Amino acid sequence: MKVVVIGGTGLIGSKVVAKLQEHGHEAVPASPNSGVNTLTGEGLDEALQGAQVVVDVSNSPSFADDDVMEFFRTSTSNVLKAEKAAGVGHHVALSVVGTDRLQGSGYFRAKQVQEDLIKDGGIPYSIVHATQFFEFAKGLADQATDGDTVTLLPVKIQPVFSDDVATAVGRTAVGEPLNAITEVAGPDVFELPELIRKELAAKQDTRKVVADPNGTYWGAKIQDDTLLPGPDAHIGEVHFDEWLAQQK
C-alpha cells in the first residue's frame, strides 16, 4: 500500500513513515524538504500519484492566530483537492483531543476548521485525536512561565508518548476509513501542575510551578476534564515516568 505522509519528516511523521515501512508498506514522506509544499500546492500532484492513503500530520510553522488559521485552511484544501485528482481513497489526519472544547484558542479554532474541511471534503477519512505529547511538556511550561514561576490551570491531563501516537496513526492509515474520530492517550492521568513539576525536576529546572484556577490553556478557558479522552480511547503502552527516566 502506498501511503503519503504529509509532514513526514517531523516528530510524528518520521515515526509513522518508519512504522509503515517496517510493515511492508510504501510510505513516502512529503514536506517542503522533499519538494512538497501544501500551502502553494507545489509537488502535491506528483507526490500523490498512485497513493491509496494520505496521512496529514503537518503543523503550522507559526502559532499566531491568523497564521495558523491560514495554514490549516489552505493546506488542507490543497491536499484534499490533490487527493481527489489522484483518486486517493482514505485521508487520515492527526488532531487533538478536546479540539471542539478548546475554541477559545486560535490554534484550536484552526484545527476545528481543518477537521470540518476533511469531514465535508468528499473523501473517506479518519481523524486521530491525540492528547498532549510527553515531548511537549517543557513547551507547556515555557509558555506559562513568567520570571521563575510557571502558572498552570489545575486540570487533568493524560499525556501520551509520540511513539504510541505514531502507532495509532499508522494502524488507522492501513485500516478502513472510519469517517469518524478515534482517540489515543497515555496510560496515566495527572493534574497539569503535577506533570510539569515532574518534567522540570527531572531536568533539574528550578522554576516554581503554581496552580491558578483562573488561568487558561493556550488562551482557552477549560474545565477539569477538557483535555481527557473519552472511554473508548486507545491507550498507549509507555508511562510518563518511564519515558522521563530514559531522558536523563
Rank of each mutant, 00 (worst) to 15 (best):
N59T: 10
P193M: 06
K15S: 15
G41P: 07
E242D: 13
T226H: 05
T131N: 12
V54W: 10
Q158I: 08
V4D: 12
L153P: 03
V155F: 04
D45S: 13
D224T: 13
W218G: 00
T182N: 06
Q103Y: 01
K15F: 11
S62W: 00
A85D: 14
Q103S: 05
G215C: 03
Q103V: 09
V96R: 09
F108W: 05
A93Y: 06
G175V: 07
A166N: 13
I157L: 08
L192N: 02
E135H: 07
H234C: 09
G236H: 00
A168H: 10
M69Y: 03
R171F: 09
R197P: 05
Q114E: 09
T216P: 03
P177Y: 11
Q158T: 10
L200F: 11
D116T: 11
I181M: 08
K19A: 15
T172Y: 13
H90N: 06
V54T: 11
Y125A: 06
D241I: 01
A47Y: 09
I196Y: 07
P193Q: 05
Y125G: 06
P193C: 07
Q114N: 03
P213E: 03
A180H: 10
G106L: 04
T149R: 12
D146A: 12
P231N: 11
D66K: 05
G7Y: 11
L94Y: 14
E42L: 12
G175E: 09
G7W: 09
L140H: 02
E26N: 12
L94W: 13
D120I: 00
K208T: 15
H91Q: 09
S31L: 08
L228S: 09
Q49V: 12
G8L: 14
Q247S: 11
P29F: 10
D67Q: 01
G87H: 09
F161T: 01
D116G: 03
I123G: 03
V189F: 03
W218Q: 04
Q132L: 10
D66C: 00
A51Q: 10
G219M: 02
V17Y: 15
K248C: 01
I235G: 09
A202P: 03
E191F: 07
T131K: 12
G10E: 08
P32Q: 04
P29N: 11
S77V: 01
I12E: 10
V128S: 06
D212H: 06
G87M: 08
A168P: 04
N33Q: 15
Y107S: 04
E183C: 09
K2Q: 15
K248W: 01
V113G: 00
L228H: 05
M1H: 14
V165K: 07
G50S: 14
D212F: 06
P193T: 04
E194G: 12
T206I: 07
A141Y: 00
D148R: 12
P124E: 02
I222E: 02
R171C: 07
V238T: 12
R197I: 06
T151V: 04
S60H: 04
H234Y: 14
A30G: 05
Q223C: 00
A110I: 05
K203S: 09
V16C: 15
A93K: 08
N78T: 05
D163A: 13
K208M: 11
V57C: 14
G10N: 10
S162T: 09
G98T: 13
P32W: 03
N214R: 02
L44M: 10
